[in-house]
């Protein structure tokens, strides 16, 4: 499974603050990469499934990302839509840390 993934370097670990998110664009696609207060990293598609707002402009609350426009929330670990107006789950992507750099695994 993992060899089908295209592992892409995003940034250094310390470029994402604790309990924060950054935007990562690749080609025509955009992603959101998160760091929790506990130091875990996660990645999801970058746009809210409700109205295509960049989630990287939102805030991380525990293990949730809140959309900046309508405050819909997703669990960043599973992509599950947790509160309206977010109803459709978010696609998640695996993350690994290598030599202090954050990588996300992308597949078509």
């Amino acid at each position: 499974m993992s060899d089908r993934l295209d592992w892409v370097e995003v940034c250094a670990v310390d470029e994402i603050d604790e309990e924060d998110v950054i935007r990562f664009d690749r080609g025509t696609k955009t992603y959101a990469v998160y760091r929790t207060l506990e130091g875990a990293f996660y990645a999801t598609d970058g746009l809210c499934t409700h109205e295509q707002i960049h989630l990287a402009d939102g805030i991380v609350i525990d293990s949730l990302i809140e959309c900046p426009k309508h405050q819909g929330r997703f669990d960043i670990r599973s992509g599950e839509a947790k509160s309206a107006p977010a109803c459709v789950n978010l696609r998640i992507h695996p993350v690994r840390i290598e030599a202090g750099r954050v990588h996300i695994g992308l597949s078509d």
Binding site: H50, E51, K69, H70, A84, P85
Partner: peptide, 10 residues
């Protein structure tokens, strides 16, 4: 109103 208000903000 939850949905109406989301549209108002959009």
């Amino acid at each position: 109103w939850r949905w109406s208000h989301a549209r108002h903000h959009s």
